[in-house]
Amino acid sequence: MADPRKYPEITINPESIRQAIDARMNARLKMWMRICAHCGLCADTCHFYVAKDRDPKMVPSYKAQKLKEFVKKKGQVDEAYLKEIYDIAYGDCTVCRRCTMFCPFGIDMATMVATLRGILTSQGMAPEGLKAAIKNYQETGNQMAVSEEDWVETLKWMEEELQEELPGAVIPIDKKGAKIMYTVNAREPKFYPQDIQLAAKVFHVVGEDWTFPSKVGWDDTNLAMFAGDLKTAGYIVQLIRDAAEELQVQRVVITE
Protein backbone atom coordinates (compact mmCIF):
# COMPACT_ATOMS: atom_id res chain seq x y z
CA MET A 1 0.00 0.00 0.00
CA ALA A 2 1.29 3.41 -0.85
CA ASP A 3 2.13 5.72 2.00
CA PRO A 4 -0.98 7.89 2.42
CA ARG A 5 1.02 10.69 4.00
CA LYS A 6 1.83 13.67 1.88
CA TYR A 7 5.14 15.41 2.17
CA PRO A 8 6.16 18.80 0.87
CA GLU A 9 8.65 18.72 -1.95
CA ILE A 10 12.16 18.30 -0.64
CA THR A 11 15.41 19.62 -2.00
CA ILE A 12 18.39 18.75 0.17
CA ASN A 13 21.11 21.32 0.52
CA PRO A 14 23.55 20.25 3.28
CA GLU A 15 25.21 23.65 3.51
CA SER A 16 21.87 25.41 3.87
CA ILE A 17 20.75 22.92 6.53
CA ARG A 18 23.99 23.48 8.43
CA GLN A 19 23.49 27.23 8.38
CA ALA A 20 19.89 26.88 9.51
CA ILE A 21 21.04 24.75 12.44
CA ASP A 22 23.89 27.09 13.38
CA ALA A 23 21.58 30.08 13.36
CA ARG A 24 19.19 28.36 15.74
CA MET A 25 21.62 26.75 18.20
CA ASN A 26 21.58 28.82 21.36
CA ALA A 27 23.03 28.13 24.80
CA ARG A 28 19.77 26.68 26.11
CA LEU A 29 19.32 24.12 23.34
CA LYS A 30 22.96 23.06 23.60
CA MET A 31 22.63 22.64 27.36
CA TRP A 32 19.42 20.62 27.07
CA MET A 33 20.89 18.32 24.46
CA ARG A 34 23.80 17.70 26.82
CA ILE A 35 22.15 17.19 30.19
CA CYS A 36 19.04 15.09 29.42
CA ALA A 37 19.61 12.14 31.74
CA HIS A 38 17.21 9.94 29.74
CA CYS A 39 15.33 9.15 32.94
CA GLY A 40 11.97 8.66 31.26
CA LEU A 41 9.94 10.71 33.77
CA CYS A 42 8.45 12.66 30.85
CA ALA A 43 7.00 9.56 29.15
CA ASP A 44 3.49 9.41 30.59
CA THR A 45 3.09 13.19 30.72
CA CYS A 46 2.62 13.20 26.93
CA HIS A 47 -0.90 12.87 25.54
CA PHE A 48 0.50 11.22 22.40
CA TYR A 49 2.22 8.58 24.52
CA VAL A 50 -0.93 7.84 26.48
CA ALA A 51 -3.26 7.97 23.45
CA LYS A 52 -1.03 5.78 21.30
CA ASP A 53 -1.06 2.95 23.80
CA ARG A 54 2.26 3.81 25.45
CA ASP A 55 4.22 3.76 22.20
CA PRO A 56 7.87 4.35 23.24
CA LYS A 57 8.40 6.52 20.16
CA MET A 58 6.01 9.04 21.71
CA VAL A 59 8.25 9.63 24.74
CA PRO A 60 8.97 13.40 24.71
CA SER A 61 12.68 12.93 25.39
CA TYR A 62 12.92 10.62 22.38
CA LYS A 63 11.41 13.27 20.12
CA ALA A 64 13.46 16.10 21.62
CA GLN A 65 16.72 14.19 21.34
CA LYS A 66 16.09 13.92 17.60
CA LEU A 67 17.35 17.49 17.54
CA LYS A 68 20.69 16.31 18.95
CA GLU A 69 20.85 13.58 16.33
CA PHE A 70 19.94 16.02 13.54
CA VAL A 71 22.54 18.57 14.64
CA LYS A 72 25.25 15.91 14.78
CA LYS A 73 24.61 14.98 11.14
CA LYS A 74 25.77 18.44 10.05
CA GLY A 75 23.44 18.53 7.08
CA GLN A 76 24.44 15.09 5.79
CA VAL A 77 20.89 13.75 5.60
CA ASP A 78 18.76 12.00 3.03
CA GLU A 79 15.13 12.40 2.10
CA ALA A 80 13.94 9.50 4.26
CA TYR A 81 15.59 11.04 7.31
CA LEU A 82 13.99 14.44 6.73
CA LYS A 83 10.61 12.76 6.34
CA GLU A 84 11.13 10.96 9.65
CA ILE A 85 11.98 14.24 11.38
CA TYR A 86 9.02 15.95 9.68
CA ASP A 87 6.64 13.25 10.94
CA ILE A 88 7.95 13.57 14.48
CA ALA A 89 8.01 17.36 14.53
CA TYR A 90 4.48 17.77 13.17
CA GLY A 91 2.80 14.42 13.76
CA ASP A 92 3.94 13.38 17.23
CA CYS A 93 4.09 16.64 19.17
CA THR A 94 1.76 19.60 19.64
CA VAL A 95 4.49 21.68 21.34
CA CYS A 96 2.31 21.99 24.46
CA ARG A 97 5.18 21.92 27.00
CA ARG A 98 3.43 19.63 29.47
CA CYS A 99 6.47 17.31 29.58
CA THR A 100 8.66 20.19 30.77
CA MET A 101 6.44 20.60 33.82
CA PHE A 102 7.50 17.10 34.90
CA CYS A 103 11.16 17.21 33.83
CA PRO A 104 13.47 17.44 36.85
CA PHE A 105 15.87 19.58 34.81
CA GLY A 106 13.11 21.65 33.23
CA ILE A 107 14.22 20.74 29.72
CA ASP A 108 12.02 22.56 27.21
CA MET A 109 11.38 19.63 24.87
CA ALA A 110 8.62 21.48 23.02
CA THR A 111 11.05 24.22 22.05
CA MET A 112 13.46 21.55 20.85
CA VAL A 113 10.74 20.08 18.62
CA ALA A 114 9.78 23.58 17.46
CA THR A 115 13.43 24.08 16.51
CA LEU A 116 13.21 20.95 14.36
CA ARG A 117 10.18 22.51 12.65
CA GLY A 118 12.06 25.75 12.12
CA ILE A 119 15.01 23.99 10.50
CA LEU A 120 12.67 22.07 8.16
CA THR A 121 10.68 25.21 7.31
CA SER A 122 13.91 27.03 6.44
CA GLN A 123 14.45 24.30 3.83
CA GLY A 124 10.96 24.82 2.43
CA MET A 125 9.64 21.75 4.20
CA ALA A 126 6.45 22.77 6.01
CA PRO A 127 2.79 21.77 5.73
CA GLU A 128 1.22 23.46 2.70
CA GLY A 129 -1.38 25.29 4.78
CA LEU A 130 1.25 26.87 6.98
CA LYS A 131 3.43 27.76 4.02
CA ALA A 132 0.52 29.55 2.31
CA ALA A 133 -0.34 31.38 5.53
CA ILE A 134 3.27 32.51 6.02
CA LYS A 135 3.31 33.90 2.50
CA ASN A 136 0.05 35.76 3.18
CA TYR A 137 1.41 37.28 6.40
CA GLN A 138 4.50 38.48 4.60
CA GLU A 139 2.56 39.97 1.71
CA THR A 140 -0.60 41.29 3.37
CA GLY A 141 -0.03 41.19 7.15
CA ASN A 142 -2.77 38.62 7.72
CA GLN A 143 -2.96 34.88 7.19
CA MET A 144 -5.92 34.94 4.77
CA ALA A 145 -4.67 37.69 2.47
CA VAL A 146 -7.69 39.88 3.24
CA SER A 147 -7.05 43.21 1.50
CA GLU A 148 -7.30 46.49 3.37
CA GLU A 149 -10.29 47.39 1.23
CA ASP A 150 -12.16 44.17 2.01
CA TRP A 151 -11.32 44.49 5.70
CA VAL A 152 -12.66 48.02 6.06
CA GLU A 153 -15.69 47.23 3.90
CA THR A 154 -16.51 44.21 6.04
CA LEU A 155 -16.32 46.32 9.18
CA LYS A 156 -18.65 48.94 7.65
CA TRP A 157 -21.10 46.26 6.54
CA MET A 158 -21.15 44.71 10.01
CA GLU A 159 -21.62 48.14 11.56
CA GLU A 160 -24.68 48.75 9.38
CA GLU A 161 -26.22 45.41 10.31
CA LEU A 162 -25.49 46.03 13.97
CA GLN A 163 -27.18 49.43 13.87
CA GLU A 164 -30.41 47.82 12.72
CA GLU A 165 -30.53 46.06 16.06
CA LEU A 166 -28.70 48.58 18.22
CA PRO A 167 -29.10 52.10 16.88
CA GLY A 168 -26.06 54.19 17.66
CA ALA A 169 -23.68 51.24 17.91
CA VAL A 170 -20.44 51.73 15.96
CA ILE A 171 -17.34 49.82 14.93
CA PRO A 172 -14.64 52.47 15.38
CA ILE A 173 -11.76 52.35 12.91
CA ASP A 174 -8.38 53.98 13.60
CA LYS A 175 -9.69 55.87 16.62
CA LYS A 176 -6.61 57.46 18.14
CA GLY A 177 -6.29 57.30 21.91
CA ALA A 178 -8.95 54.61 22.36
CA LYS A 179 -8.52 52.45 25.44
CA ILE A 180 -8.59 49.13 23.57
CA MET A 181 -7.32 47.98 20.20
CA TYR A 182 -9.26 44.87 19.29
CA THR A 183 -7.69 42.18 17.09
CA VAL A 184 -9.27 39.17 15.40
CA ASN A 185 -8.52 35.94 13.60
CA ALA A 186 -8.39 36.63 9.85
CA ARG A 187 -11.01 33.89 9.45
CA GLU A 188 -13.54 36.28 10.98
CA PRO A 189 -13.60 38.92 8.21
CA LYS A 190 -13.11 36.15 5.65
CA PHE A 191 -15.75 33.61 6.71
CA TYR A 192 -17.47 34.63 9.93
CA PRO A 193 -17.99 38.41 9.90
CA GLN A 194 -20.90 38.02 12.36
CA ASP A 195 -18.32 37.26 15.04
CA ILE A 196 -17.02 40.81 14.65
CA GLN A 197 -20.55 42.12 14.97
CA LEU A 198 -21.08 40.14 18.17
CA ALA A 199 -17.89 41.46 19.72
CA ALA A 200 -18.90 44.99 18.73
CA LYS A 201 -22.27 44.41 20.39
CA VAL A 202 -20.59 43.48 23.67
CA PHE A 203 -18.25 46.48 23.50
CA HIS A 204 -21.20 48.79 22.80
CA VAL A 205 -23.38 47.46 25.60
CA VAL A 206 -20.64 47.74 28.23
CA GLY A 207 -19.67 51.16 26.87
CA GLU A 208 -16.09 50.24 26.05
CA ASP A 209 -13.77 52.68 24.27
CA TRP A 210 -12.30 50.55 21.51
CA THR A 211 -11.09 50.53 17.92
CA PHE A 212 -9.75 48.47 15.02
CA PRO A 213 -6.65 49.36 13.01
CA SER A 214 -7.54 49.78 9.34
CA LYS A 215 -4.30 48.72 7.68
CA VAL A 216 -2.38 45.85 9.30
CA GLY A 217 -1.90 44.53 12.82
CA TRP A 218 -5.50 43.40 13.29
CA ASP A 219 -4.82 39.66 12.72
CA ASP A 220 -3.73 38.16 16.03
CA THR A 221 -3.11 34.62 14.78
CA ASN A 222 0.50 33.55 14.40
CA LEU A 223 0.70 30.46 12.22
CA ALA A 224 4.34 31.23 11.38
CA MET A 225 5.15 30.33 14.97
CA PHE A 226 3.72 26.84 14.45
CA ALA A 227 6.13 26.30 11.59
CA GLY A 228 9.07 27.49 13.69
CA ASP A 229 9.46 30.49 11.37
CA LEU A 230 10.46 32.87 14.14
CA LYS A 231 11.37 35.70 11.80
CA THR A 232 7.87 35.92 10.34
CA ALA A 233 6.36 35.20 13.76
CA GLY A 234 8.21 38.19 15.15
CA TYR A 235 7.13 40.33 12.21
CA ILE A 236 3.46 39.52 12.87
CA VAL A 237 3.71 40.53 16.52
CA GLN A 238 5.59 43.66 15.51
CA LEU A 239 2.69 44.66 13.21
CA ILE A 240 0.27 44.46 16.13
CA ARG A 241 2.61 46.41 18.39
CA ASP A 242 3.20 49.09 15.79
CA ALA A 243 -0.54 49.51 15.20
CA ALA A 244 -1.18 49.77 18.95
CA GLU A 245 1.52 52.40 19.33
CA GLU A 246 0.31 54.39 16.37
CA LEU A 247 -3.23 54.43 17.74
CA GLN A 248 -1.90 55.19 21.25
CA VAL A 249 -4.15 52.59 22.88
CA GLN A 250 -3.69 51.31 26.42
CA ARG A 251 -4.10 47.65 25.65
CA VAL A 252 -4.53 45.12 22.88
CA VAL A 253 -7.39 42.66 23.23
CA ILE A 254 -7.39 39.46 21.22
CA THR A 255 -10.35 37.48 19.99
CA GLU A 256 -11.31 34.16 21.50
Partner: peptide, 26 residues
Protein backbone atom coordinates in the same frame (compact mmCIF):
# COMPACT_ATOMS: atom_id res chain seq x y z
CA UNK B 1 28.98 14.06 29.93
CA UNK B 2 25.47 14.48 31.26
CA UNK B 3 27.07 14.42 34.70
CA UNK B 4 27.70 18.12 34.08
CA UNK B 5 24.12 18.50 35.30
CA UNK B 6 25.61 18.99 38.77
CA UNK B 7 26.18 22.57 37.55
CA UNK B 8 23.80 22.90 34.61
CA UNK B 9 20.82 21.71 36.64
CA UNK B 10 20.83 25.11 38.33
CA UNK B 11 21.15 26.91 35.00
CA UNK B 12 18.39 24.93 33.33
CA UNK B 13 16.02 25.36 36.27
CA UNK B 14 16.72 29.08 36.27
CA UNK B 15 16.04 29.33 32.54
CA UNK B 16 12.75 27.47 32.75
CA UNK B 17 11.80 29.15 36.04
CA UNK B 18 12.11 32.52 34.31
CA UNK B 19 10.28 31.30 31.19
CA UNK B 20 7.39 29.67 33.05
CA UNK B 21 7.26 32.28 35.78
CA UNK B 22 6.68 35.14 33.37
CA UNK B 23 3.84 33.18 31.75
CA UNK B 24 2.23 32.43 35.09
CA UNK B 25 2.80 28.67 34.80
CA UNK B 26 3.99 26.58 37.71
Amino acid sequence: TKLSHWVLFFVSRTVIGVEFGRRNYT
